[in-house]
Design a protein around this nucleic acid. Structure first.
Length: 301
DNA sequence: ATCCAGGCTCCTG
DNA sequence: CAGGAGCATGGA
């Protein structure tokens, strides 16, 4: 069964930049991105749904595939697309104001005009990715993420194509630690992943609830859990929950790319990233995302 | 080989 | 409470 929906976003839209980000992002393991569209499967209302987004004119054409797509599921899927691609945010103010405050970022923004950050589709997925990505190179992190999905995720098949669905927390929590260890997860990563998956599955950690807390409170809540430091908390708030004014300032990629552009080549410190990014408020996550996009596209040049 | 990677915890002084 | 060692596993 296939259903189509049409979404009119707030403000100007340039979905191509989001697709470019997804094509080059190490975290985008489950997305299948073509020239002008992106597909991925998502669990919505307890069932697997394949979503495709494509820009048509100034709107987004959403196509859904799945069994028994009732109205509620279709509506929920549409809401997910709006959330993931920030379609209810108007990028206008960001692109008008920030270049006046930061000419360096302003120049980069010209290359990606009207780009909106793309979220990692599932907040749990963002958390798991952040843990997996700690202190390992992103190529390897990508491998680990794919393996986690293959160990306990499910597959949705549409027109002969297979799409992985990211597992719910309880499925991750049920993984034997030895299985993770045997799949190149370090002992500490295995423990962090299992501990966090259990916390989410039991309700002790409610990720979506962090979306409405004051940022510092949300960070404080997250770092209570073993394996979650400030970088991870900020990363999850930004990439998983779409908080617009958080920046993982300790991020090595950010420190490197910002050091190149603001500091003559040396790697910026976390404090320097915080100082520079203060000018982007209240859109610090947007600025960070653009630098990541630029970093990915230029592959570090 | 050697260095380092989209950090975190724990232990010093 | 700032700083650093130790960590665990692959890539380049």
């Amino acid at each position: 069964m296939q259903v189509e929906r049409w979404i009119v976003p707030s403000g100007p839209l340039r979905l191509a930049h989001a697709l470019l980000y997804l094509r080059t992002s190490p975290s985008a393991v489950l997305e299948k991105v073509t020239e002008d569209a992106c597909r991925r499967a998502l669990r919505i209302n307890e069932r697997a749904v394949l979503l495709q987004v494509r820009q048509e004119g100034q709107g987004v054409r959403v196509t859904l595939w799945g069994d028994a797509l009732d109205d509620a599921t279709v509506a929920a899927a549409e809401a997910e697309v709006r959330r993931i691609f920030l379609l209810d945010e108007d990028p206008g103010d960001f692109y008008r104001e920030v270049p006046l405050r930061d000419r360096v970022l302003g120049r980069v923004m010209e290359d990606y005009l009207w780009a909106r950050p793309v979220l990692i589709a599932d907040p749990l997925e963002a958390l798991m990715w952040a843990i997996i990505g700690q202190q390992v190179n992103v190529a390897f992190a990508r491998k680990l993420k794919a393996r986690l999905v293959e160990l306990c995720g499910s597959v949705l098949e549409v027109d002969g194509e297979r799409y992985w669905v990211f597992p719910p927390a309880w499925r991750i929590a049920d993984l034997p630690e030895d299985l993770l260890r045997g799949n190149q997860f370090s002992r500490q990563k295995s423990r962090y992943i299992l501990g966090l998956a259990r916390a989410v599955a039991s309700g002790e950690l409610d990720l979506r609830a962090l979306g409405v807390l004051p940022v510092e409170d949300a960070i404080a809540e997250l770092v209570r859990f073993l394996g979650v430091g400030r970088w991870t908390a900020e990363y999850v708030l930004m990439r998983g929950l779409g908080r617009p004014d958080v920046i993982p300032a300790a991020d090595l990629g950010l420190r490197a790319v910002m050091g190149r552009h603001y500091l003559g080549g040396r790697v910026a410190t976390e404090a320097e990233v915080r100082e520079i990014s203060a000018a982007w408020s209240p859109w610090r996550a947007w600025g960070a995302w653009l630098w990541w996009l630029h970093l990915q596209v230029t592959r570090g040049v």
